[in-house]
């Protein structure tokens, strides 16, 4: 298995880079049988091209609803979502997704390589280039030697690497990840987090990473959007000043990391209790350098 570390050597210029993702007054109400449920009340935020933004919130905060709206898999009740200025009405080109259920998002009747290749075929990427992309990305996620295996022959962490490889091979401008590491063990999770950071830096794409894990959000993100409980609004847009190079030991031991962790943790606790704006939040550990980004 080749190390994921060598991927940083590849030149960046043959990738399209990131696109701007804008969400304005997004609202989603589920109307099915019974009472309509307002999952998302009013979300407005922006992800700049090439930025890595994490989204955290209490469980049931409509994180997955938000991501499905961003992916064009779910129509919004009102409000706008746009990618590079173009409104999203269905799954847009140039967007790739990695879902939490790795075991169910890979086609079990296809080999690992075929899974990675299928979206490229639909994109009409020429055959030679397809083979190149499949080889490259599988090597980048350290799975070159299992290209011919079926996904279900691999461990959970490896399956999620396949899903990441598929997303990266697609050469997207935006990568959406929905709690991708929630179901893998802690050590694998650290490796995969570093893999995401490495790939993101190499490709220069826009990444939206949804997670319920506060540490993960801070470790990965340039910004962390903290959501309220449903119906969802943005509680705070927290800038993460941890620099470009992150290290599992150094970064997580950093005083700034600890401060951010405390702050976001308190916000999520407040959100669980139904607090819907920063002004109403009672924070016992006030953030001394109020980190505001975006808004």
């Amino acid at each position: 298995m080749s190390s994921p570390a060598n991927v940083a050597d590849r030149p960046v210029d043959d990738h399209p880079g990131g696109a701007r993702l804008e969400v304005r007054n997004l609202r989603k109400v589920y109307t099915g049988r019974g009472e309509p449920v307002e999952a998302v009340a009013d979300l407005t935020f922006e992800v700049r091209p090439g930025e890595l933004v994490c989204v955290v919130g209490p469980s049931g905060a409509g994180k997955t609803t938000l991501l499905r709206c961003l992916a064009g898999l779910l129509p919004a009740t009102s409000g706008d979502v746009s990618l590079g200025g173009a409104p999203i009405t269905g799954p847009p080109p140039g967007m790739a997704v990695v879902l939490q259920e790795y075991g169910r998002s890979l086609f079990p009747w296809m080999s690992v390589a075929q899974n990675v290749e299928l979206p490229l075929k639909e994109k009409r990427v020429p055959k030679a280039r397809r083979a190149e992309l499949v080889d490259e990305t599988l090597a980048a996620v350290g799975l070159a030697d299992v290209a011919g295996s079926y996904p279900w022959q691999l461990s959970g962490g490896m399956q999620q690497r396949v899903a990441i490889a598929r997303a990266v091979a697609y050469e997207p401008q935006v990568l959406l990840m929905d709690e991708p590491f929630a179901a893998v063990d802690a050590q694998t999770r650290f490796e995969l987090e570093d893999l995401v950071r490495t790939l993101w830096k190499r490709l220069g794409i826009t990444v939206v990473f949804v997670t319920h894990d506060i540490d993960e959000a801070i470790y990965l993100g340039e910004r962390v959007l903290v959501l309220s409980a449903r119906p969802t609004v943005v509680l705070e847009d927290v800038a993460v000043g941890l620099g470009a190079d992150r290290d599992q030991l150094e970064t997580r031991g950093d005083a700034e990391f600890a401060r951010l962790r405390t702050h976001v943790y308190e916000l999520v606790q407040q959100a669980k209790q139904g607090v819907r704006s920063l002004a109403d939040a009672h924070l016992t550990h006030p953030a001394d350098t109020p980190p505001r980004a975006g808004a």
Binding site: R104, F107, M110, E122
Partner: peptide, 25 residues
């Protein structure tokens, strides 16, 4: 599996590819 259906949609698989690679298989 709805997750597979979502995956096929998100990667913009066309009707023929969806039938061939997702539905029939």
């Amino acid at each position: 599996d709805p997750v597979l259906r979502d995956t096929a949609r998100a990667y913009r698989l066309g009707l023929v590819a969806t039938l061939r690679h997702l539905v029939l298989r």
